[in-house]
Design a protein around this nucleic acid. Structure first.
Lengths: 228, 228
DNA sequence: ACGATATGTGTACGCCATCCACAAGCACGA
DNA sequence: TCGTGCTTGTGGATGGCGTACACATATCGT
Protein backbone atom coordinates (compact mmCIF):
# COMPACT_ATOMS: atom_id res chain seq x y z
CA UNK A 1 0.00 0.00 0.00
CA UNK A 2 2.73 2.43 0.83
CA UNK A 3 5.05 1.15 -1.86
CA UNK A 4 3.25 1.24 -5.15
CA UNK A 5 1.18 4.39 -4.63
CA UNK A 6 2.69 7.00 -2.34
CA UNK A 7 0.27 8.92 -0.11
CA UNK A 8 -1.03 12.05 -1.81
CA UNK A 9 -0.15 14.32 1.10
CA UNK A 10 3.52 13.55 0.82
CA UNK A 11 3.61 13.90 -2.92
CA UNK A 12 1.91 17.28 -2.85
CA UNK A 13 4.61 18.86 -0.72
CA UNK A 14 7.49 17.18 -2.40
CA UNK A 15 7.19 19.46 -5.37
CA UNK A 16 7.01 22.94 -3.98
CA UNK A 17 5.91 24.78 -7.07
CA UNK A 18 8.23 27.77 -6.83
CA UNK A 19 10.69 27.23 -4.05
CA UNK A 20 13.14 29.72 -5.48
CA UNK A 21 10.62 32.51 -5.10
CA UNK A 22 9.51 31.27 -1.68
CA UNK A 23 13.08 31.32 -0.43
CA UNK A 24 13.63 34.80 -1.78
CA UNK A 25 10.47 36.08 -0.12
CA UNK A 26 11.46 34.49 3.16
CA UNK A 27 14.90 36.03 2.83
CA UNK A 28 13.43 39.47 2.20
CA UNK A 29 11.26 39.10 5.24
CA UNK A 30 14.20 38.09 7.38
CA UNK A 31 16.29 40.98 6.10
CA UNK A 32 13.45 43.36 6.81
CA UNK A 33 13.40 42.32 10.44
CA UNK A 34 17.03 41.77 11.29
CA UNK A 35 19.28 43.07 8.56
CA UNK A 36 21.60 40.99 6.40
CA UNK A 37 22.85 38.89 9.31
CA UNK A 38 19.36 37.52 9.88
CA UNK A 39 18.93 36.00 6.45
CA UNK A 40 19.98 32.41 6.94
CA UNK A 41 19.48 29.42 4.71
CA UNK A 42 18.03 27.27 7.42
CA UNK A 43 15.42 29.76 8.54
CA UNK A 44 14.42 30.53 4.96
CA UNK A 45 13.95 26.86 4.15
CA UNK A 46 12.13 26.37 7.43
CA UNK A 47 9.64 29.04 6.45
CA UNK A 48 9.22 27.47 3.06
CA UNK A 49 8.45 24.17 4.78
CA UNK A 50 11.36 22.36 3.26
CA UNK A 51 14.57 20.75 4.37
CA UNK A 52 17.69 22.99 4.57
CA UNK A 53 19.56 21.35 1.72
CA UNK A 54 16.76 21.99 -0.71
CA UNK A 55 17.96 25.58 -0.95
CA UNK A 56 21.08 24.47 -2.76
CA UNK A 57 19.04 23.51 -5.80
CA UNK A 58 18.25 27.19 -6.30
CA UNK A 59 21.08 29.14 -4.69
CA UNK A 60 24.69 28.11 -4.72
CA UNK A 61 25.30 29.35 -1.20
CA UNK A 62 23.86 31.46 1.54
CA UNK A 63 25.67 34.43 0.05
CA UNK A 64 23.96 33.84 -3.29
CA UNK A 65 20.57 34.02 -1.62
CA UNK A 66 21.65 37.14 0.25
CA UNK A 67 22.73 38.66 -3.04
CA UNK A 68 19.29 38.10 -4.48
CA UNK A 69 17.76 39.69 -1.38
CA UNK A 70 20.12 42.63 -1.82
CA UNK A 71 18.91 43.17 -5.36
CA UNK A 72 15.31 43.02 -4.20
CA UNK A 73 16.00 45.53 -1.44
CA UNK A 74 17.65 47.88 -3.90
CA UNK A 75 14.63 47.60 -6.16
CA UNK A 76 12.35 48.34 -3.21
CA UNK A 77 14.35 51.47 -2.49
CA UNK A 78 13.95 52.53 -6.09
CA UNK A 79 10.21 51.99 -5.84
CA UNK A 80 10.06 54.13 -2.72
CA UNK A 81 11.85 56.89 -4.59
CA UNK A 82 9.51 56.63 -7.54
CA UNK A 83 6.61 56.87 -5.14
CA UNK A 84 7.85 60.23 -4.00
CA UNK A 85 8.45 61.34 -7.57
CA UNK A 86 4.94 60.34 -8.52
CA UNK A 87 3.57 62.66 -5.84
CA UNK A 88 4.89 65.69 -7.69
CA UNK A 89 2.43 67.94 -9.44
CA UNK A 90 3.53 68.81 -12.92
CA UNK A 91 4.65 72.39 -13.39
CA UNK A 92 5.66 74.45 -16.34
CA UNK A 93 8.62 75.95 -14.48
CA UNK A 94 11.51 73.68 -15.43
CA UNK A 95 13.83 75.01 -12.74
CA UNK A 96 11.26 74.60 -9.99
CA UNK A 97 10.39 71.11 -11.04
CA UNK A 98 14.03 70.12 -11.25
CA UNK A 99 14.48 71.21 -7.67
CA UNK A 100 11.29 69.46 -6.66
CA UNK A 101 12.37 66.18 -8.18
CA UNK A 102 15.74 66.32 -6.46
CA UNK A 103 13.90 66.82 -3.19
CA UNK A 104 11.58 63.94 -3.99
CA UNK A 105 14.49 61.61 -4.62
CA UNK A 106 16.15 62.68 -1.40
CA UNK A 107 13.08 62.29 0.73
CA UNK A 108 12.18 58.95 -0.83
CA UNK A 109 15.68 57.70 -0.13
CA UNK A 110 15.54 58.85 3.44
CA UNK A 111 12.03 57.67 4.07
CA UNK A 112 12.94 54.19 2.92
CA UNK A 113 16.03 54.17 5.10
CA UNK A 114 13.92 55.16 8.09
CA UNK A 115 10.95 52.88 7.56
CA UNK A 116 12.90 49.86 6.34
CA UNK A 117 16.27 50.01 8.04
CA UNK A 118 16.80 46.27 7.72
CA UNK A 119 16.24 46.28 3.98
CA UNK A 120 18.27 49.46 3.58
CA UNK A 121 21.24 47.99 5.39
CA UNK A 122 20.89 44.81 3.41
CA UNK A 123 20.80 46.70 0.13
CA UNK A 124 24.21 48.18 0.85
CA UNK A 125 25.78 45.30 2.72
CA UNK A 126 28.95 43.80 1.34
CA UNK A 127 29.01 40.40 -0.38
CA UNK A 128 31.26 37.93 1.40
CA UNK A 129 33.46 37.70 -1.64
CA UNK A 130 34.38 41.37 -1.39
CA UNK A 131 35.11 41.59 2.31
CA UNK A 132 38.83 41.30 1.92
CA UNK A 133 40.05 42.96 -1.24
CA UNK A 134 38.76 44.43 -4.44
CA UNK A 135 37.08 42.11 -6.91
CA UNK A 136 36.36 42.47 -10.59
CA UNK A 137 32.99 44.13 -10.89
CA UNK A 138 30.17 41.96 -12.13
CA UNK A 139 27.64 43.16 -14.68
CA UNK A 140 24.74 44.11 -12.45
CA UNK A 141 23.02 47.27 -13.69
CA UNK A 142 19.57 45.79 -13.38
CA UNK A 143 16.68 48.17 -14.01
CA UNK A 144 15.38 50.71 -11.55
CA UNK A 145 18.58 51.67 -9.78
CA UNK A 146 18.20 54.33 -7.07
CA UNK A 147 21.30 56.11 -8.28
CA UNK A 148 19.99 56.26 -11.80
CA UNK A 149 16.89 57.95 -10.48
CA UNK A 150 19.02 60.53 -8.74
CA UNK A 151 20.92 60.99 -11.97
CA UNK A 152 17.66 61.61 -13.79
CA UNK A 153 16.83 64.35 -11.33
CA UNK A 154 20.14 65.98 -12.14
CA UNK A 155 19.35 65.74 -15.83
CA UNK A 156 16.49 68.05 -15.19
CA UNK A 157 18.85 70.57 -13.64
CA UNK A 158 20.94 70.45 -16.78
CA UNK A 159 17.85 70.76 -18.97
CA UNK A 160 16.68 73.74 -16.96
CA UNK A 161 20.01 75.42 -17.52
CA UNK A 162 20.81 75.40 -13.82
CA UNK A 163 23.75 73.06 -14.12
CA UNK A 164 26.33 73.27 -16.88
CA UNK A 165 26.93 69.83 -18.44
CA UNK A 166 30.63 69.79 -17.67
CA UNK A 167 29.84 70.00 -13.96
CA UNK A 168 27.29 67.27 -14.23
CA UNK A 169 29.45 64.36 -13.16
CA UNK A 170 30.84 66.05 -10.08
CA UNK A 171 27.35 67.16 -9.16
CA UNK A 172 26.16 63.60 -9.41
CA UNK A 173 28.79 62.41 -7.00
CA UNK A 174 28.00 65.20 -4.59
CA UNK A 175 24.31 64.42 -4.64
CA UNK A 176 24.86 60.68 -4.28
CA UNK A 177 27.32 61.13 -1.47
CA UNK A 178 25.26 63.66 0.42
CA UNK A 179 22.02 61.72 0.28
CA UNK A 180 23.53 58.30 0.86
CA UNK A 181 25.82 59.60 3.58
CA UNK A 182 23.00 61.33 5.40
CA UNK A 183 20.96 58.16 5.30
CA UNK A 184 23.87 56.15 6.70
CA UNK A 185 24.51 58.63 9.47
CA UNK A 186 20.86 58.55 10.40
CA UNK A 187 20.56 54.79 10.26
CA UNK A 188 23.59 53.85 12.29
CA UNK A 189 25.66 56.96 12.71
CA UNK A 190 25.77 59.85 15.12
CA UNK A 191 22.46 61.21 13.86
CA UNK A 192 20.54 58.15 14.95
CA UNK A 193 18.99 59.81 17.96
CA UNK A 194 17.40 62.66 16.00
CA UNK A 195 13.63 62.82 15.73
CA UNK A 196 12.16 62.03 12.30
CA UNK A 197 10.85 65.56 11.86
CA UNK A 198 14.26 66.97 12.57
CA UNK A 199 15.77 64.46 10.17
CA UNK A 200 13.63 65.61 7.30
CA UNK A 201 14.44 69.19 8.22
CA UNK A 202 18.13 68.37 8.03
CA UNK A 203 17.51 66.77 4.66
CA UNK A 204 15.84 69.96 3.47
CA UNK A 205 18.74 72.12 4.51
CA UNK A 206 21.21 69.64 3.13
CA UNK A 207 19.52 69.65 -0.26
CA UNK A 208 19.44 73.44 -0.18
CA UNK A 209 23.18 73.44 0.21
CA UNK A 210 23.66 70.77 -2.41
CA UNK A 211 21.71 72.89 -4.84
CA UNK A 212 23.76 75.89 -3.89
CA UNK A 213 26.82 73.79 -4.59
CA UNK A 214 25.37 72.47 -7.83
CA UNK A 215 24.03 75.56 -9.34
CA UNK A 216 26.45 77.64 -11.30
CA UNK A 217 26.56 81.32 -10.31
CA UNK A 218 24.98 82.45 -13.56
CA UNK A 219 22.23 79.86 -13.23
CA UNK A 220 21.57 80.92 -9.67
CA UNK A 221 21.37 84.53 -10.75
CA UNK A 222 18.90 83.63 -13.46
CA UNK A 223 16.75 81.75 -10.98
CA UNK A 224 16.85 84.53 -8.42
CA UNK A 225 15.89 87.02 -11.12
CA UNK A 226 13.10 84.80 -12.28
CA UNK A 227 11.75 84.39 -8.79
CA UNK A 228 11.39 88.09 -8.11
CA UNK B 1 57.17 16.57 42.07
CA UNK B 2 54.32 17.54 39.85
CA UNK B 3 51.97 18.12 42.75
CA UNK B 4 53.59 20.54 45.11
CA UNK B 5 55.38 22.68 42.52
CA UNK B 6 53.68 22.91 39.15
CA UNK B 7 55.95 22.95 36.09
CA UNK B 8 56.99 26.48 35.22
CA UNK B 9 56.03 26.17 31.56
CA UNK B 10 52.43 25.43 32.36
CA UNK B 11 52.14 28.14 34.95
CA UNK B 12 53.55 30.73 32.60
CA UNK B 13 50.80 30.29 30.04
CA UNK B 14 47.96 29.86 32.48
CA UNK B 15 48.13 33.49 33.37
CA UNK B 16 48.25 35.34 30.13
CA UNK B 17 49.29 38.71 31.43
CA UNK B 18 46.95 40.86 29.43
CA UNK B 19 44.49 38.66 27.62
CA UNK B 20 42.01 41.49 27.22
CA UNK B 21 44.48 43.48 25.19
CA UNK B 22 45.61 40.40 23.26
CA UNK B 23 42.02 39.60 22.29
CA UNK B 24 41.41 43.16 21.20
CA UNK B 25 44.55 43.18 19.09
CA UNK B 26 43.60 39.90 17.49
CA UNK B 27 40.13 41.25 16.85
CA UNK B 28 41.52 44.36 15.21
CA UNK B 29 43.73 42.22 13.03
CA UNK B 30 40.80 40.06 11.98
CA UNK B 31 38.66 43.10 11.23
CA UNK B 32 41.47 44.56 9.17
CA UNK B 33 41.55 41.49 6.97
CA UNK B 34 37.94 40.48 6.69
CA UNK B 35 35.65 43.15 8.07
CA UNK B 36 33.36 42.81 11.07
CA UNK B 37 32.16 39.33 10.08
CA UNK B 38 35.69 37.98 10.45
CA UNK B 39 36.12 38.92 14.07
CA UNK B 40 35.15 35.79 15.88
CA UNK B 41 35.68 34.83 19.49
CA UNK B 42 37.15 31.47 18.68
CA UNK B 43 39.73 32.80 16.24
CA UNK B 44 40.71 35.63 18.56
CA UNK B 45 41.25 33.24 21.46
CA UNK B 46 43.08 30.87 19.16
CA UNK B 47 45.51 33.62 18.27
CA UNK B 48 45.95 34.49 21.90
CA UNK B 49 46.82 30.84 22.58
CA UNK B 50 43.93 30.32 24.90
CA UNK B 51 40.74 28.31 25.05
CA UNK B 52 37.57 29.94 23.58
CA UNK B 53 35.73 30.39 26.85
CA UNK B 54 38.55 32.42 28.32
CA UNK B 55 37.28 35.38 26.32
CA UNK B 56 34.19 35.59 28.47
CA UNK B 57 36.24 36.75 31.43
CA UNK B 58 36.97 39.94 29.50
CA UNK B 59 34.09 40.43 27.07
CA UNK B 60 30.49 39.58 27.79
CA UNK B 61 29.89 38.35 24.26
CA UNK B 62 31.26 38.32 20.79
CA UNK B 63 29.40 41.55 20.13
CA UNK B 64 31.11 43.18 23.10
CA UNK B 65 34.49 42.34 21.64
CA UNK B 66 33.36 43.62 18.26
CA UNK B 67 32.24 46.82 19.91
CA UNK B 68 35.70 47.32 21.35
CA UNK B 69 37.19 46.68 17.93
CA UNK B 70 34.78 49.23 16.47
CA UNK B 71 35.97 51.85 18.91
CA UNK B 72 39.56 51.07 18.05
CA UNK B 73 38.83 51.32 14.34
CA UNK B 74 37.12 54.66 14.84
CA UNK B 75 40.14 55.88 16.76
CA UNK B 76 42.42 54.68 13.96
CA UNK B 77 40.34 56.66 11.49
CA UNK B 78 40.71 59.74 13.66
CA UNK B 79 44.45 59.23 13.75
CA UNK B 80 44.57 58.98 9.97
CA UNK B 81 42.73 62.27 9.74
CA UNK B 82 45.05 63.93 12.20
CA UNK B 83 47.95 62.68 10.16
CA UNK B 84 46.66 64.60 7.19
CA UNK B 85 45.99 67.66 9.30
CA UNK B 86 49.53 67.55 10.63
CA UNK B 87 50.87 67.74 7.09
CA UNK B 88 49.48 71.23 6.65
CA UNK B 89 51.86 74.13 6.60
CA UNK B 90 50.74 76.95 8.81
CA UNK B 91 49.54 80.03 6.96
CA UNK B 92 48.47 83.47 8.03
CA UNK B 93 45.51 83.42 5.66
CA UNK B 94 42.65 82.17 7.83
CA UNK B 95 40.33 81.50 4.91
CA UNK B 96 42.92 79.52 2.99
CA UNK B 97 43.87 77.46 6.00
CA UNK B 98 40.22 76.73 6.79
CA UNK B 99 39.78 75.35 3.30
CA UNK B 100 43.00 73.42 3.58
CA UNK B 101 41.97 71.77 6.82
CA UNK B 102 38.61 70.73 5.40
CA UNK B 103 40.48 69.14 2.53
CA UNK B 104 42.84 67.43 4.91
CA UNK B 105 39.98 65.92 6.88
CA UNK B 106 38.32 64.74 3.71
CA UNK B 107 41.41 63.18 2.25
CA UNK B 108 42.36 61.54 5.55
CA UNK B 109 38.92 60.05 5.79
CA UNK B 110 39.04 58.74 2.27
CA UNK B 111 42.59 57.51 2.48
CA UNK B 112 41.74 55.47 5.53
CA UNK B 113 38.66 54.04 3.87
CA UNK B 114 40.77 53.01 0.90
CA UNK B 115 43.79 51.61 2.68
CA UNK B 116 41.88 49.96 5.52
CA UNK B 117 38.51 48.94 4.12
CA UNK B 118 38.07 46.21 6.70
CA UNK B 119 38.60 48.55 9.62
CA UNK B 120 36.51 51.25 8.00
CA UNK B 121 33.59 48.92 7.51
CA UNK B 122 33.99 47.66 11.04
CA UNK B 123 34.01 51.18 12.44
CA UNK B 124 30.58 51.83 10.99
CA UNK B 125 29.08 48.37 11.31
CA UNK B 126 25.93 47.99 13.35
CA UNK B 127 25.94 46.39 16.79
CA UNK B 128 23.79 43.28 16.96
CA UNK B 129 21.54 44.92 19.51
CA UNK B 130 20.54 47.62 17.05
CA UNK B 131 19.85 45.47 14.01
CA UNK B 132 16.11 45.43 14.53
CA UNK B 133 14.87 48.68 16.00
CA UNK B 134 16.11 51.84 17.60
CA UNK B 135 17.82 51.57 20.96
CA UNK B 136 18.51 54.14 23.63
CA UNK B 137 21.83 55.70 22.77
CA UNK B 138 24.70 54.84 25.06
CA UNK B 139 27.16 57.43 26.27
CA UNK B 140 30.04 56.84 23.87
CA UNK B 141 31.70 60.12 22.94
CA UNK B 142 35.21 58.83 23.57
CA UNK B 143 38.04 61.13 22.60
CA UNK B 144 39.32 61.64 19.08
CA UNK B 145 36.09 61.26 17.12
CA UNK B 146 36.42 61.66 13.34
CA UNK B 147 33.27 63.75 13.21
CA UNK B 148 34.55 66.07 15.87
CA UNK B 149 37.62 66.64 13.76
CA UNK B 150 35.45 67.56 10.83
CA UNK B 151 33.54 69.89 13.10
CA UNK B 152 36.75 71.56 14.10
CA UNK B 153 37.55 72.20 10.46
CA UNK B 154 34.20 73.91 10.11
CA UNK B 155 34.97 76.04 13.14
CA UNK B 156 37.78 77.51 11.17
CA UNK B 157 35.37 78.46 8.42
CA UNK B 158 33.28 80.29 10.97
CA UNK B 159 36.33 81.95 12.46
CA UNK B 160 37.45 83.07 9.03
CA UNK B 161 34.07 84.65 8.44
CA UNK B 162 33.30 82.32 5.55
CA UNK B 163 30.41 80.61 7.28
CA UNK B 164 27.78 82.43 9.33
CA UNK B 165 27.27 80.69 12.70
CA UNK B 166 23.59 80.08 12.16
CA UNK B 167 24.38 77.98 9.11
CA UNK B 168 27.01 76.08 11.00
CA UNK B 169 24.90 73.05 11.99
CA UNK B 170 23.50 72.44 8.52
CA UNK B 171 26.97 72.82 7.11
CA UNK B 172 28.24 70.22 9.50
CA UNK B 173 25.64 67.71 8.37
CA UNK B 174 26.39 68.42 4.75
CA UNK B 175 30.10 67.92 5.23
CA UNK B 176 29.64 64.76 7.27
CA UNK B 177 27.19 63.31 4.82
CA UNK B 178 29.19 64.16 1.75
CA UNK B 179 32.49 62.81 3.03
CA UNK B 180 31.06 59.74 4.71
CA UNK B 181 28.75 59.02 1.80
CA UNK B 182 31.54 59.30 -0.72
CA UNK B 183 33.65 56.92 1.30
CA UNK B 184 30.81 54.42 1.48
CA UNK B 185 30.13 54.63 -2.24
CA UNK B 186 33.79 54.06 -2.94
CA UNK B 187 34.16 51.20 -0.49
CA UNK B 188 31.17 49.13 -1.47
CA UNK B 189 29.02 51.24 -3.73
CA UNK B 190 28.90 52.02 -7.42
CA UNK B 191 32.17 53.95 -7.29
CA UNK B 192 34.18 50.92 -6.25
CA UNK B 193 35.69 50.37 -9.65
CA UNK B 194 37.24 53.83 -9.91
CA UNK B 195 40.99 54.23 -9.82
CA UNK B 196 42.41 55.77 -6.66
CA UNK B 197 43.67 58.81 -8.52
CA UNK B 198 40.23 59.41 -9.94
CA UNK B 199 38.75 58.92 -6.50
CA UNK B 200 40.86 61.66 -4.97
CA UNK B 201 39.96 63.87 -7.90
CA UNK B 202 36.31 63.28 -7.22
CA UNK B 203 36.93 64.14 -3.60
CA UNK B 204 38.51 67.40 -4.66
CA UNK B 205 35.57 68.40 -6.78
CA UNK B 206 33.14 67.27 -4.14
CA UNK B 207 34.82 69.41 -1.52
CA UNK B 208 34.80 72.33 -3.93
CA UNK B 209 31.08 72.02 -4.18
CA UNK B 210 30.65 71.52 -0.48
CA UNK B 211 32.54 74.75 0.09
CA UNK B 212 30.43 76.46 -2.48
CA UNK B 213 27.41 75.20 -0.61
CA UNK B 214 28.87 76.21 2.73
CA UNK B 215 30.14 79.60 1.96
CA UNK B 216 27.68 82.41 2.22
CA UNK B 217 27.49 84.66 -0.85
CA UNK B 218 29.04 87.60 0.98
CA UNK B 219 31.81 85.45 2.32
CA UNK B 220 32.50 84.07 -1.12
CA UNK B 221 32.63 87.56 -2.56
CA UNK B 222 35.09 88.60 0.10
CA UNK B 223 37.29 85.62 -0.66
CA UNK B 224 37.16 86.18 -4.39
CA UNK B 225 38.06 89.82 -3.87
CA UNK B 226 40.91 88.87 -1.56
CA UNK B 227 42.26 86.40 -4.07
CA UNK B 228 42.57 88.86 -6.90
C1' DA C 1 48.67 30.22 56.09
C1' DC C 2 44.27 30.40 54.12
C1' DG C 3 40.17 31.55 52.02
C1' DA C 4 38.07 34.69 48.54
C1' DT C 5 38.46 36.13 44.01
C1' DA C 6 40.00 36.37 39.36
C1' DT C 7 41.18 33.89 35.47
C1' DG C 8 41.63 29.96 32.41
C1' DT C 9 39.95 24.87 31.17
C1' DG C 10 36.64 21.02 29.81
C1' DT C 11 32.54 19.50 28.30
C1' DA C 12 28.33 20.14 26.14
C1' DC C 13 24.39 22.14 23.49
C1' DG C 14 22.20 24.20 19.67
C1' DC C 15 22.54 26.87 15.53
C1' DC C 16 24.76 27.44 11.26
C1' DA C 17 26.70 26.34 6.15
C1' DT C 18 27.87 22.83 3.40
C1' DC C 19 29.12 18.06 1.38
C1' DC C 20 27.67 13.44 -0.09
C1' DA C 21 24.73 9.73 -1.30
C1' DC C 22 20.00 8.66 -2.15
C1' DA C 23 14.88 8.97 -3.39
C1' DA C 24 10.87 10.87 -5.52
C1' DG C 25 8.62 13.19 -9.11
C1' DC C 26 8.49 14.62 -14.03
C1' DA C 27 9.30 14.79 -19.11
C1' DC C 28 10.21 12.62 -23.18
C1' DG C 29 11.51 9.15 -26.49
C1' DA C 30 11.55 3.99 -27.83
C1' DT D 1 3.30 1.88 -22.42
C1' DC D 2 7.25 1.65 -20.20
C1' DG D 3 11.48 2.86 -19.10
C1' DT D 4 15.48 6.32 -18.74
C1' DG D 5 17.43 10.34 -17.26
C1' DC D 6 17.04 14.96 -15.44
C1' DT D 7 15.39 17.95 -11.79
C1' DT D 8 14.21 18.67 -7.20
C1' DG D 9 13.80 17.43 -2.48
C1' DT D 10 15.52 14.22 1.63
C1' DG D 11 18.72 12.11 5.13
C1' DG D 12 22.75 11.99 7.47
C1' DA D 13 27.25 13.79 8.63
C1' DT D 14 31.06 17.14 9.39
C1' DG D 15 33.05 21.10 11.17
C1' DG D 16 32.72 26.03 12.72
C1' DC D 17 30.50 29.13 15.61
C1' DG D 18 28.55 31.45 20.25
C1' DT D 19 27.61 30.38 24.70
C1' DA D 20 26.22 28.08 29.32
C1' DC D 21 27.78 25.35 33.34
C1' DA D 22 30.87 23.11 36.28
C1' DC D 23 35.62 22.79 37.51
C1' DA D 24 40.70 23.89 38.18
C1' DT D 25 44.35 26.95 39.20
C1' DA D 26 46.79 31.11 40.17
C1' DT D 27 46.92 35.48 42.91
C1' DC D 28 45.97 38.55 46.60
C1' DG D 29 44.38 40.41 50.96
C1' DT D 30 44.20 39.40 55.67
Amino acid sequence: MSKTTAPAAQRSTYRHGDLQRALLDAGIDLARGGGPAAVTLREATRRAGVVPNAAYRHYASRDALLQAVRRAALAALAVAIEDQLARLRTTADAAASARASLRAVGSGYLKFARTEPGLFRTAFSVPDALQGAAVAEKAGASGLNPFQLLGAALDRFVDAGLLPPQRRLGAEYLAWSAVHGLAMLIIDGPLRAMSPSQQTLVLQRLLDMVEQGLVTPEGAAAVTAGRK
